[in-house]
Amino acid sequence: MNKPFDIVNFGEEPTPPLLVYKYLSPERVTDVLENQTVRFMRLLDTNDSFEVRATFRRFAGPRFVKLMEDFVTEKTTEAHVDKALARKLDEIGLSSMPPIMAKVLFKEKFGKDLSAYMKDEMKARLPALSAALNALQTPEDFLNELGSSLLCFSLSETYTSAPMWAHYAVNHTGFVLEFDTAHPWFRNISDKQKSLLRQVKYVDGQLDEALDDPHAAFGSKTADWAYEKEWRVYCKF
Protein backbone atom coordinates (compact mmCIF):
# COMPACT_ATOMS: atom_id res chain seq x y z
CA MET A 1 0.00 0.00 0.00
CA ASN A 2 1.23 3.50 -0.76
CA LYS A 3 1.65 6.09 1.97
CA PRO A 4 -1.68 6.78 3.72
CA PHE A 5 -3.27 10.04 2.68
CA ASP A 6 -5.22 12.36 4.98
CA ILE A 7 -7.93 13.53 2.62
CA VAL A 8 -9.10 16.22 4.97
CA ASN A 9 -6.71 17.58 7.54
CA PHE A 10 -8.83 20.51 8.65
CA GLY A 11 -10.64 20.96 11.94
CA GLU A 12 -11.69 18.35 14.46
CA GLU A 13 -12.18 14.81 13.21
CA PRO A 14 -14.91 12.56 14.65
CA THR A 15 -13.51 9.80 16.86
CA PRO A 16 -13.80 6.38 15.18
CA PRO A 17 -15.70 3.62 17.00
CA LEU A 18 -13.66 0.99 18.79
CA LEU A 19 -14.62 -1.61 16.18
CA VAL A 20 -15.38 -1.35 12.48
CA TYR A 21 -16.50 -4.03 10.04
CA LYS A 22 -15.89 -5.15 6.49
CA TYR A 23 -18.56 -7.04 4.54
CA LEU A 24 -17.00 -9.55 2.15
CA SER A 25 -18.05 -12.08 -0.44
CA PRO A 26 -17.35 -15.81 0.16
CA GLU A 27 -14.60 -15.97 -2.48
CA ARG A 28 -12.55 -13.45 -0.50
CA VAL A 29 -11.80 -16.01 2.25
CA THR A 30 -8.42 -16.99 0.79
CA ASP A 31 -6.95 -13.57 0.07
CA VAL A 32 -8.35 -11.89 3.21
CA LEU A 33 -8.30 -14.54 5.93
CA GLU A 34 -5.44 -16.73 4.70
CA ASN A 35 -3.24 -14.22 2.85
CA GLN A 36 -4.19 -11.31 5.12
CA THR A 37 -4.59 -8.81 2.31
CA VAL A 38 -7.28 -6.19 1.81
CA ARG A 39 -8.36 -4.29 -1.26
CA PHE A 40 -8.28 -0.53 -1.73
CA MET A 41 -10.59 0.88 -4.39
CA ARG A 42 -10.23 3.97 -6.54
CA LEU A 43 -12.81 6.62 -5.61
CA LEU A 44 -14.05 6.79 -9.19
CA ASP A 45 -14.81 3.04 -9.06
CA THR A 46 -16.92 2.85 -5.90
CA ASN A 47 -20.51 1.65 -5.90
CA ASP A 48 -21.93 5.18 -5.63
CA SER A 49 -22.01 6.68 -9.13
CA PHE A 50 -22.25 10.10 -7.49
CA GLU A 51 -19.27 9.47 -5.21
CA VAL A 52 -17.14 12.01 -7.09
CA ARG A 53 -19.49 14.87 -7.80
CA ALA A 54 -19.68 18.66 -7.60
CA THR A 55 -20.03 18.93 -3.84
CA PHE A 56 -19.15 22.65 -3.80
CA ARG A 57 -19.58 25.55 -6.23
CA ARG A 58 -16.27 27.33 -5.74
CA PHE A 59 -12.99 26.96 -3.91
CA ALA A 60 -12.81 30.47 -2.44
CA GLY A 61 -15.70 32.47 -1.04
CA PRO A 62 -16.36 34.56 2.09
CA ARG A 63 -15.01 31.90 4.46
CA PHE A 64 -11.77 31.67 2.51
CA VAL A 65 -11.39 35.46 2.50
CA LYS A 66 -12.04 35.61 6.26
CA LEU A 67 -9.46 32.85 6.85
CA MET A 68 -6.90 34.76 4.80
CA GLU A 69 -7.72 38.05 6.54
CA ASP A 70 -7.10 36.40 9.92
CA PHE A 71 -3.82 35.02 8.59
CA VAL A 72 -2.74 38.46 7.35
CA THR A 73 -3.64 40.02 10.71
CA GLU A 74 -1.57 37.40 12.51
CA LYS A 75 1.44 37.88 10.24
CA THR A 76 1.45 41.70 10.36
CA THR A 77 1.71 42.17 14.10
CA GLU A 78 4.62 44.36 15.22
CA ALA A 79 6.51 41.30 16.46
CA HIS A 80 6.20 39.46 13.11
CA VAL A 81 7.09 42.57 11.10
CA ASP A 82 10.15 43.20 13.29
CA LYS A 83 11.38 39.64 12.72
CA ALA A 84 10.84 39.90 8.96
CA LEU A 85 12.61 43.28 8.88
CA ALA A 86 15.55 41.93 10.87
CA ARG A 87 15.97 39.06 8.37
CA LYS A 88 15.76 41.42 5.41
CA LEU A 89 18.22 43.92 6.90
CA ASP A 90 20.64 41.06 7.55
CA GLU A 91 20.30 39.88 3.93
CA ILE A 92 21.25 43.30 2.55
CA GLY A 93 24.13 43.83 4.96
CA LEU A 94 22.40 46.18 7.38
CA SER A 95 22.12 43.84 10.33
CA SER A 96 23.30 46.61 12.66
CA MET A 97 20.19 48.68 11.94
CA PRO A 98 17.37 48.04 14.45
CA PRO A 99 14.00 47.20 12.86
CA ILE A 100 12.44 50.15 14.70
CA MET A 101 14.76 52.51 12.83
CA ALA A 102 13.80 51.00 9.50
CA LYS A 103 10.13 51.51 10.35
CA VAL A 104 10.78 55.14 11.29
CA LEU A 105 12.57 55.73 7.97
CA PHE A 106 9.69 54.09 6.09
CA LYS A 107 7.16 56.36 7.78
CA GLU A 108 9.24 59.47 7.10
CA LYS A 109 9.54 58.61 3.42
CA PHE A 110 5.99 57.33 2.72
CA GLY A 111 3.97 58.83 5.57
CA LYS A 112 2.58 55.45 6.57
CA ASP A 113 3.07 52.93 9.36
CA LEU A 114 4.83 49.89 7.85
CA SER A 115 2.78 47.25 9.67
CA ALA A 116 -0.53 48.91 8.79
CA TYR A 117 0.62 49.41 5.21
CA MET A 118 1.55 45.74 4.82
CA LYS A 119 -1.76 44.62 6.30
CA ASP A 120 -3.82 46.89 4.03
CA GLU A 121 -1.87 45.91 0.93
CA MET A 122 -2.15 42.19 1.60
CA LYS A 123 -5.88 42.36 2.38
CA ALA A 124 -6.50 44.43 -0.74
CA ARG A 125 -5.15 41.56 -2.84
CA LEU A 126 -7.39 38.89 -1.35
CA PRO A 127 -10.33 39.35 -3.78
CA ALA A 128 -7.93 38.87 -6.71
CA LEU A 129 -6.50 35.77 -5.03
CA SER A 130 -9.99 34.32 -4.56
CA ALA A 131 -10.87 35.02 -8.19
CA ALA A 132 -7.63 33.41 -9.37
CA LEU A 133 -8.27 30.27 -7.31
CA ASN A 134 -11.79 29.96 -8.64
CA ALA A 135 -10.61 30.44 -12.22
CA LEU A 136 -7.70 28.01 -11.90
CA GLN A 137 -9.80 24.84 -12.08
CA THR A 138 -13.46 23.91 -11.76
CA PRO A 139 -14.51 21.93 -8.68
CA GLU A 140 -15.70 19.15 -11.01
CA ASP A 141 -12.29 18.81 -12.67
CA PHE A 142 -10.48 18.95 -9.33
CA LEU A 143 -12.69 16.30 -7.73
CA ASN A 144 -12.33 14.03 -10.75
CA GLU A 145 -8.55 14.31 -10.50
CA LEU A 146 -8.77 13.59 -6.79
CA GLY A 147 -11.03 10.61 -7.44
CA SER A 148 -8.54 9.24 -9.97
CA SER A 149 -5.54 9.58 -7.67
CA LEU A 150 -6.96 8.31 -4.38
CA LEU A 151 -7.73 4.81 -3.19
CA CYS A 152 -9.92 4.03 -0.21
CA PHE A 153 -10.44 1.08 2.11
CA SER A 154 -14.08 1.18 3.22
CA LEU A 155 -15.50 -0.14 6.48
CA SER A 156 -18.71 0.22 8.44
CA GLU A 157 -19.49 0.87 12.09
CA THR A 158 -22.29 -1.70 11.93
CA TYR A 159 -22.36 -5.42 11.14
CA THR A 160 -26.16 -5.75 11.16
CA SER A 161 -27.12 -3.87 8.00
CA ALA A 162 -29.36 -6.11 5.88
CA PRO A 163 -28.74 -4.15 2.64
CA MET A 164 -24.99 -4.47 3.14
CA TRP A 165 -25.23 -8.18 3.87
CA ALA A 166 -27.17 -8.49 0.62
CA HIS A 167 -24.95 -6.27 -1.48
CA TYR A 168 -21.38 -6.79 -0.24
CA ALA A 169 -21.72 -10.25 1.28
CA VAL A 170 -23.57 -11.67 -1.75
CA ASN A 171 -27.06 -12.18 -0.34
CA HIS A 172 -25.87 -13.24 3.12
CA THR A 173 -23.53 -15.95 1.79
CA GLY A 174 -20.34 -14.08 2.68
CA PHE A 175 -18.92 -12.94 5.99
CA VAL A 176 -18.08 -9.84 8.03
CA LEU A 177 -14.59 -9.16 9.34
CA GLU A 178 -14.12 -7.16 12.54
CA PHE A 179 -11.27 -4.64 12.87
CA ASP A 180 -9.88 -3.09 16.04
CA THR A 181 -9.41 0.62 15.29
CA ALA A 182 -6.73 0.91 17.99
CA HIS A 183 -4.41 -1.31 15.93
CA PRO A 184 -1.25 0.49 14.67
CA TRP A 185 -2.32 -0.14 11.06
CA PHE A 186 -5.01 2.51 11.53
CA ARG A 187 -2.67 5.03 13.14
CA ASN A 188 -0.99 8.04 11.56
CA ILE A 189 2.68 7.31 10.89
CA SER A 190 3.93 10.63 12.25
CA ASP A 191 1.46 10.91 15.13
CA LYS A 192 0.33 7.63 16.66
CA GLN A 193 -2.40 9.41 18.62
CA LYS A 194 -4.23 10.24 15.38
CA SER A 195 -6.36 7.75 13.49
CA LEU A 196 -6.25 7.38 9.71
CA LEU A 197 -9.94 6.52 9.68
CA ARG A 198 -12.15 9.25 8.24
CA GLN A 199 -15.91 9.27 8.59
CA VAL A 200 -17.90 9.60 5.40
CA LYS A 201 -20.49 12.38 5.44
CA TYR A 202 -23.84 11.96 3.73
CA VAL A 203 -25.10 15.14 2.11
CA ASP A 204 -27.15 16.13 -0.91
CA GLY A 205 -26.89 19.37 -2.82
CA GLN A 206 -23.89 21.68 -3.04
CA LEU A 207 -21.91 23.80 -0.63
CA ASP A 208 -21.25 27.38 -1.68
CA GLU A 209 -17.51 26.96 -1.07
CA ALA A 210 -15.21 24.18 0.06
CA LEU A 211 -14.57 25.73 3.49
CA ASP A 212 -18.27 25.71 4.36
CA ASP A 213 -17.68 22.06 5.32
CA PRO A 214 -14.34 20.64 4.12
CA HIS A 215 -15.25 17.10 5.20
CA ALA A 216 -18.42 17.15 3.11
CA ALA A 217 -16.64 18.85 0.21
CA PHE A 218 -13.89 16.24 -0.07
CA GLY A 219 -15.26 13.12 1.64
CA SER A 220 -19.01 12.68 1.28
CA LYS A 221 -21.62 10.52 -0.42
CA THR A 222 -25.25 11.23 -1.15
CA ALA A 223 -27.77 10.73 1.67
CA ASP A 224 -29.14 7.55 0.04
CA TRP A 225 -26.03 5.74 1.30
CA ALA A 226 -26.27 6.86 4.94
CA TYR A 227 -27.27 3.36 6.10
CA GLU A 228 -23.69 2.21 5.40
CA LYS A 229 -22.27 4.28 8.30
CA GLU A 230 -18.97 4.24 6.48
CA TRP A 231 -15.43 4.95 7.65
CA ARG A 232 -12.40 4.98 5.35
CA VAL A 233 -8.65 4.88 5.13
CA TYR A 234 -7.31 6.76 2.11
CA CYS A 235 -4.03 6.38 0.27
CA LYS A 236 -2.51 7.85 -2.86
CA PHE A 237 -2.80 5.87 -6.08
Rank of each mutant, 00 (worst) to 15 (best):
G111L: 03
V104H: 01
N47S: 12
F64Y: 09
N35R: 13
K75H: 12
L129N: 00
F56C: 04
D31M: 10
V104K: 03
F56K: 03
T73I: 06
P99Q: 10
L114S: 03
P127W: 13
K119E: 15
V32P: 02
L33V: 13
A102S: 08
T73E: 15
T73P: 03
A124H: 11
A79F: 09
L44G: 04
L129R: 03
K103H: 05
E69C: 09
R87P: 00
T77M: 15
P127R: 03
F64K: 01
A132S: 09
F71M: 08
G93L: 02
F106T: 01
V29T: 07
R53P: 03
G111C: 03
M41F: 15
V72K: 02
G93M: 03
S95W: 02
D48I: 06
A132Y: 02
V65K: 05
T30S: 06
K83C: 00
A86V: 06
D70M: 14
A131T: 12
H80C: 12
E69V: 10
R58K: 14
M68K: 04
G61Y: 08
T46Y: 11
K109N: 06
K103F: 02
V32H: 03
T30H: 06
A132M: 11
R57W: 04
K119M: 08
F56G: 01
V81R: 01
R53C: 01
S95R: 10
N47G: 14
K119A: 12
N47T: 10
M122I: 11
L33D: 14
F64T: 06
S96D: 13
T77R: 08
L67C: 12
D48C: 07
D113I: 04
E74H: 10
A86C: 08
M101W: 00
T46R: 08
T46I: 12
M68D: 03
D48W: 04
P99C: 15
M101G: 11
E108C: 06
D113K: 06
K123R: 13
F40C: 06
N47V: 11
L43S: 02
P127I: 14
L67M: 12
G111D: 05
G61C: 09
F59S: 01
D45K: 07
L43M: 12
T37V: 07
L105C: 06
L114Y: 05
A124G: 15
T77W: 02
R125H: 09
L133F: 04
S95C: 11
M41K: 09
E91P: 07
L44C: 08
N134W: 08
S95Y: 03
R57V: 00
A116D: 15
A84D: 15
P99E: 10
V38N: 01
K83S: 04
D45C: 12
F71I: 00
T77S: 15
L105N: 07
F106R: 02
F50G: 00
A86M: 10
M97E: 07
N35C: 05
E108D: 08
D120N: 08
A124E: 11
S115C: 12
S49Y: 13
G93T: 03
R39D: 07
M101I: 14
